[in-house]
Amino acid sequence: MLCVKNLVKTFDGERRRRSRAAGAEPARVFAVNDISFDVPNGSLFTLLGPSGCGKTTTLRSIAGLERPDSGTIEVGGRVLFAGGSGAKTVNVPANERGLGMVFQSYAIWPHMSVFDNVAFPLQVKKRASRPGKKEIAERVMRVLQTMELADLADRQATKLSGGQQQRLALARALVIEPPLLLLDEPLSNLDAKLRESLRYELKRLQRELGITSVYVTHDQVEALVLSTSIAVMKGGNVMQLGRPREIYENPNCRFVAEFIGTSNFIAGTVAARENDRYAVDTADGRLLLDSAASIPVGTEVVVSIRPEAVEVGATRAGEVPNEWTGKVLTRAFLGEAVDHVVAVGKHEIRARGNPAVSIEPGTEVYLRMDPGKLTLVPVG
């Protein structure tokens, strides 16, 4: 459905102090640095990363709100943008791309009713492609029914709740029946409880309607819940691209491991390898882990350990791999789990487990880490 190839977008940076007098051109800053990805039909693809990583610039380039320096953007085989390397430039205007977009601010027209907000994109189409009044009314009511807003069709848009306004913005984007839906952090203005419920509502709608979507967010939980696949971005580059479980369980670098969830990081050196079983020597002992990575013996690495992969016990388990002793520094009740922070030598390891298990700070404990749940991350 969507194919992005070698997309580059730069902006003017600040001039260096020394070069101002010479009238030198400002340095170029890469907002998007030669990225490529494909979004299959009916899937929800998420661009995930911190502020300034290039995710929104990428989305706006697809929408036609930013003009890339080079690369190609195709939707359903139709070229929306092509440029660079001396090739003939194609740049379809945003209003002619036929894509749906939901903004972070919703952009609801306050002087219109719910019905009129949704009908407006159809009413302003060119006469040749504009539906008749009857068809417009049918399409608007159909999408309002899907969004559970049909009973509010005559209400002023500003008298809706935050969640209802978010669904109204989504209805307005869907009524034109776009081949591709673009969503720029549409849930970020909502409170935590409403945001959580609408994640699942959005996921249900996307799958039931089969809408091909590109979703931008900095919220890693949101990305894991909603996505068919995720591209984790940093500094205009895609650091890792894959399915949510793959990225969470097998991050390819420390940045991805830190950004997707919470991890303990323990530096060490590969001491031995037998098939997929690695032995890593660290400052506080040896760790055994399973990894399909190909890393030579003697290489410096980082072992990433998710808190839920660490089991805390008051007694020694016996001859099991990766059992370390430590002392509980602090604990935190999270409702569905309890976090313990345990001092082991120079490291402070976070463990997350059953809320029924809560151990007093200062208690000597044993940590057990399943080799199959540890991840080997190359340094750098």
Rank of each mutant, 00 (worst) to 15 (best):
I176N: 01
I176S: 08
I176P: 01
I176G: 00
I176L: 12
I176W: 00
E177T: 11
E177F: 03
P178W: 02
P178K: 02
P179Y: 13
P179E: 13
L180K: 06
L180P: 06
L180C: 11
L181N: 08
L182W: 10
L182F: 11
L182Q: 04
L182I: 08
L182K: 05
L182A: 10
L182M: 12
L182G: 09
L183K: 02
L183A: 09
L183G: 11
D184G: 04
D184Q: 02
D184E: 06
D184R: 00
E185I: 12
E185A: 08
E185F: 09
E185S: 09
P186R: 05
P186K: 05
P186W: 08
P186N: 08
L187I: 04
L187Y: 01
L187K: 00
L187A: 02
S188G: 12
S188T: 05
N189L: 13
N189W: 08
N189A: 15
N189Q: 13
N189T: 11
N189K: 12
L190W: 06
L190P: 05
D191K: 01
D191V: 04
D191R: 01
D191H: 08
D191Y: 05
D191G: 01
A192G: 04
A192C: 02
A192H: 00
K193N: 14
K193F: 03
K193T: 12
L194V: 15
L194H: 00
L194Y: 00
R195L: 13
R195K: 14
E196G: 08
E196I: 13
E196P: 00
E196L: 15
E196D: 12
E196F: 14
S197L: 12
S197T: 15
S197R: 15
S197W: 05
L198H: 00
L198C: 06
L198K: 00
L198Y: 03
L198D: 04
L198T: 02
R199H: 09
R199A: 12
R199F: 13
Y200P: 00
Y200L: 15
Y200C: 02
Y200R: 11
Y200A: 03
Y200N: 11
Y200D: 06
E201C: 04
E201W: 04
E201V: 10
E201G: 03
E201R: 07
L202E: 07
L202I: 14
L202F: 13
K203V: 13
K203G: 10
K203E: 12
K203C: 12
K203A: 15
K203N: 15
K203D: 14
R204H: 12
R204E: 13
R204Q: 11
R204P: 00
L205A: 04
L205S: 00
L205N: 01
L205Y: 05
L205R: 00
L205Q: 02
L205K: 01
L205W: 09
Q206K: 09
Q206I: 10
Q206R: 06
Q206M: 10
Q206S: 07
Q206D: 10
R207N: 09
R207M: 11
R207E: 11
R207A: 11
R207T: 10
R207F: 02
E208W: 01
E208S: 11
E208K: 06
L209Q: 09
L209N: 03
L209G: 02
L209A: 03
G210H: 04
G210I: 01
G210R: 03
G210C: 06
I211Y: 00
T212D: 11
T212N: 09
S213Y: 05
S213L: 12
S213W: 05
S213R: 03
V214K: 03
V214F: 09
V214P: 07
V214N: 01
V214G: 01
